Amino acid sequence: MNAIETIISTRSIRKYTDSEGANMDESAKEKLLSELVGLLLEERGKKAIVPPGRLWETFRALANTRPPWPAGERMLQLQDELLAEMLRVKGIHGIDEAEASPSNHALRLWRGDITTLEVDAIVNAANSQMLGCWVPGHHCIDNAIHTFAGIQLRLECNEIMQGQGHEEPTGCAKITSAYNLPCKHVIHTVGPIADGCPSSLHGKQLASCYESCLDLAEKQGVTSLAFCCISTGIFGFPQKEAAEIAIRTVSRWLGRHPESGLSVVFNVFLESDEAIYRELLGMPKDGRPANP
Results as ranks from 00 to 15, higher is better:
85 E>K: 14
110 W>Q: 06
117 L>F: 10
46 K>L: 15
128 S>Q: 12
52 P>Q: 08
61 A>F: 06
94 G>K: 03
43 E>T: 14
135 V>P: 00
61 A>Y: 05
53 G>S: 10
66 R>W: 00
69 W>C: 05
67 P>H: 10
77 Q>R: 14
78 L>T: 09
57 E>P: 00
76 L>F: 11
135 V>I: 15
77 Q>M: 13
120 D>R: 06
127 N>P: 04
48 A>I: 10
57 E>H: 11
88 R>M: 06
121 A>T: 01
52 P>A: 07
70 P>D: 07
82 L>K: 06
104 N>F: 00
101 S>E: 08
134 W>C: 09
50 V>Y: 08
65 T>H: 07
127 N>Q: 05
85 E>H: 13
52 P>I: 01
104 N>L: 06
113 D>R: 06
118 E>D: 15
118 E>A: 15
84 A>S: 15
107 L>V: 01
62 L>N: 03
92 I>L: 05
49 I>A: 14
133 C>N: 09
70 P>R: 13
105 H>C: 02
108 R>Y: 03
64 N>Q: 10
120 D>H: 04
108 R>T: 04
109 L>V: 01
132 G>Y: 01
53 G>H: 12
130 M>Y: 07
53 G>P: 11
130 M>N: 15
110 W>I: 06
103 S>V: 03
96 D>N: 05
50 V>N: 09
111 R>N: 09
119 V>S: 06
117 L>T: 03
133 C>I: 03
50 V>G: 09
72 G>K: 14
91 G>P: 10
106 A>P: 00
124 N>G: 04
41 L>S: 06
110 W>A: 07
108 R>K: 13
108 R>C: 02
123 V>C: 06
81 E>D: 15
67 P>Y: 09
108 R>G: 04
133 C>L: 04
106 A>D: 08
84 A>K: 15
52 P>D: 13
115 T>G: 04
112 G>W: 01
112 G>S: 05
65 T>W: 05
67 P>K: 14
111 R>I: 00
126 A>F: 01
129 Q>F: 05
109 L>H: 02
72 G>R: 13
44 R>Q: 15
86 M>P: 01
79 Q>D: 13
51 P>A: 14
48 A>Y: 10
117 L>Y: 10
112 G>H: 04
45 G>I: 02
112 G>Y: 01
133 C>T: 04
55 L>T: 05
60 R>M: 10
76 L>H: 07
55 L>W: 09
130 M>W: 02
106 A>C: 07
92 I>W: 08
69 W>R: 13
132 G>M: 05
63 A>C: 11
133 C>K: 01
85 E>L: 09
55 L>D: 10
43 E>D: 08
112 G>N: 04
104 N>R: 12
56 W>H: 11
45 G>D: 12
120 D>S: 12
127 N>T: 05
96 D>T: 03
56 W>V: 13
114 I>Y: 03
91 G>Y: 04
50 V>M: 05
135 V>D: 07
108 R>H: 04
54 R>N: 11
49 I>M: 10
53 G>I: 09
110 W>R: 07
91 G>M: 07
40 L>K: 13
72 G>P: 12
58 T>D: 09
94 G>Q: 07
82 L>T: 08
72 G>C: 12
72 G>A: 13
72 G>F: 10
102 P>N: 06
107 L>G: 02
98 A>N: 02
62 L>W: 07
134 W>K: 09
75 M>Y: 13
56 W>F: 14
